[in-house]
Amino acid sequence: MSICVANISKSYKNVKALQDISFNVKVGELFGIIGPDGAGKTTLFRILTTLLFADNGRATVSGWDVVSDYKNIRKSVGYMPGRFSLYQDLTVEENLQFFATIFGTTIEENYDLIKDIYVQIEPFKDRRAGKLSGGMKQKLALCCALIHKPKVLFLDEPTTGVDPVSRKEFWEMLKRLQQKNITILVSTPYMDEAALCDRIALIQDGKILEIDTPEAIVKHYPKPIYNVSANNMYKLINSLNAYQYIHSVYPFGEFVHYTDKRAEFNAVELKLYLESKNLSNIRIEKTVATIEDTFMELAK
């Protein structure tokens, strides 16, 4: 295994950031930690990258213990924190040279690893990092995390605040890096990005809710789920929440995702109920659950 986490817990005074967390990541795997802000993702990453001590439990990265072997881990992993943490007054090229020098290497030595990413920012190599766009900062940070050819790459919410096109490009880059047998542990609050991972761990309030492939997690959704729409979304949600047979109701784009507590769902009865609430243009159709639906169900 590339990463082994066993019964890790961490508290900040009265706040339990991580509660008995355990999971393993295989060599070359793209593993996602999926959860909202405050779920414990950053605390977990800081422990695994030797920046923070756990209160309890044990973890290893590439076979090295995160406490006793911290020097070896720091030499062999790449870490991209959630906030842009490069030197804003240095240029793109200067930042890359600086991080290469720290790890005792050169840009030329490992250029093949970062080439696909660096060519996109190379036209701006003389621009100060602080003047780059969000997507360009992201690419530069990834290059700096890769310049020493790490065995494991830790990416803590790398696409937060980045435009959709740059997000898509970033995940395409991760897939290419994975082909070079680099283990990637990535955290994200975006449920749609979970589907791009080999396996995911859903985390909430410092607890792992479930670990599996994205496909298997979606299949575990326990009930039929329906898209419901009407002329007034706000009134529709309130009406569904007041329905006696409701199990769950969540807004989902132009629809509401609805599940019923009964074994046999009656769409005609629900439509008549909504019409009695003066709603019109009512549509009710069966749909497939998403990772977000599964997360919300588990989090209940």
Score class of each variant (00 low, 15 high):
Y190W: 04
L146F: 07
M173K: 06
G161M: 12
D293K: 05
G130V: 06
A141K: 04
V228R: 07
F31T: 05
F295T: 03
Q97H: 07
S187I: 08
L155W: 01
Y190T: 05
S239V: 03
Y250I: 11
K223H: 15
V67Q: 14
K139A: 02
M173D: 14
S76D: 13
Q244K: 11
G38F: 09
F255P: 00
I34Q: 01
N7Q: 15
A299C: 05
Y258I: 05
N7I: 08
A289P: 02
P81G: 10
T49G: 03
E275P: 01
A129K: 02
H247S: 15
E215P: 00
I282Q: 08
V268A: 13
Q88F: 02
D116A: 12
K16E: 10
N24D: 15
K10Q: 01
L113R: 06
E254R: 10
E292D: 14
N14V: 08
F124Q: 13
E210T: 10
Q120R: 14
F265A: 10
G32P: 01
V228N: 02
L30T: 05
K261S: 09
L274C: 07
N7C: 12
S239Q: 03
C144K: 00
Y87R: 10
V162A: 03
D69H: 13
N72Q: 15
D192S: 09
Y243P: 00
N72W: 03
S276N: 09
R176Y: 11
C143K: 03
F252T: 11
M173V: 13
D156P: 01
H148S: 07
Q138Y: 07
E292V: 07
N7L: 09
F98C: 08
T287W: 01
V256A: 02
I237V: 15
L132C: 07
D89C: 05
G130P: 03
L86W: 02
S68H: 14
N72E: 15
K125Y: 04
L209D: 03
M173I: 13
L274A: 02
K75I: 10
K41W: 05
Q19P: 00
R128D: 01
P164I: 09
